[in-house]
Design a protein around this nucleic acid. Structure first.
Lengths: 124, 124, 124, 124
DNA sequence: GTGGTCTAGACCACC
DNA sequence: GTGGTCTAGACCACG
């Protein structure tokens, strides 16, 4: 199973599930047409309520990453590489924008911030 | 009044108050020894409950930015420039680390991420 | 219920709750992973406001004794015996330091103070 | 002036004044019949309200340490050495009792606590 | 059910 | 006036 849940995370469980599948889809680990585990099977394996896995799958479907087929299962939607790339950029950009906003407020220069970014990239 | 509250923000009100005063302190807008508005005056002006402003001030005190003196008021603590600089870095680094983690997961290179950062810095 | 509140105590109620849970944790009566009563259940049982029990739990969390998990409950954190022993020592030392300061001001010798301590220990 | 006030102390100002005069009396620094500074003079010198110094003097009088003579001033009461010694012991004992109570709750032995006391005595 | 947040009042000690 | 504490409700997200 490619989903790992942390009870101590600040993120709600349904969001953790959502994020991990979305990441696997945009990075190509889960490919177009591939089936996700059934909500019940997943719920059993990671020990959460079916309601919780259902909510994660609903959100994935709402955002166009998967499609539910009644009585069959849930499958990765077909998407252009373009779309996937855009999604990736958007996800990083959101987080990055917050950091930049903070840096601006605090009067850090672009160069200082870049140095921090490089350090963080090399780490770990 | 130097505090602006957004009810539609995902951040709780007390956090918004906390953030804004913390920003003003680390950037030197509020200086050592200066008084913050009283919890009741602030509560009145931004239309929130006293308990909410109190919680923000409690958190600021816990983190060493201000000191509350019963019957007197709440004042910016004296702290080294060192400390302020460290705080600034820490605040940006936290956000930046999230962005970098996301970028790594999605397979972006350090250079690509830096380009996005530069763009965001120039913007707006 | 292992919590007893005195309205006539000089300590605020949230502090009384905090102290009693902290004591039970450092002495091992409450063990790692064990659940504390929910803030609402506790509030009902000892007849105080929810906000008061919440404040006690917040403080316990801030000091690393428990972890609150939204929608789940509040649980004793895992911590080393080392940490617990240190906490114990710190708690007694704080009070003892006050007594020693007073004794010094008043010109009592170490021996005199020790005798008082022994008497107090044998008592009751 | 033998009174020092700390605005950052958790003790209210009137209590700080009370404590310092009481200490000076029981240790014999202020002797029987000696005059305390007038409430107004003291208030001016330590920069607090007259109401505050008045409250401290009232409490000292209530507890038998000084006597106010209308239009004259405030003077240290005559007291037996016996009484002073008892007061001293009582003051230390109160603080010590708290420490011992805490130590007992936490399962520390008398010997362990004595060792801490000795350490604290030698320090500083 | 749980915790997280918030409101609109209130009383107190202190200055 | 100030901060410190408390109450008795309420709504929300989460499971």
């Amino acid at each position: 199973m490619n989903v790992i849940i942390s009870n101590s995370s600040e993120n709600p469980i349904y969001k953790q599930i959502y994020d991990q599948f979305r990441n696997q889809i945009v990075t190509g680990i889960l490919k177009e047409g591939e089936a996700l585990p059934s909500i019940r099977k997943l719920a059993r394996e990671i020990n959460v309520s079916v309601i919780t896995t259902k909510k994660a799958y609903d959100d994935l479907e709402r955002d166009g990453f998967v499609a539910s087929v009644g009585g069959k299962g849930t499958f990765v939607s077909s998407q252009s590489l373009e779309f996937l790339r855009e999604q990736k950029m958007k996800m990083v950009e959101e987080k990055l924008a917050e950091a930049v906003a903070e840096a601006k407020i605090l009067g850090l220069t672009c160069e200082e911030t870049e140095q921090m970014l490089e350090l963080l990239f090399r780490e770990e």
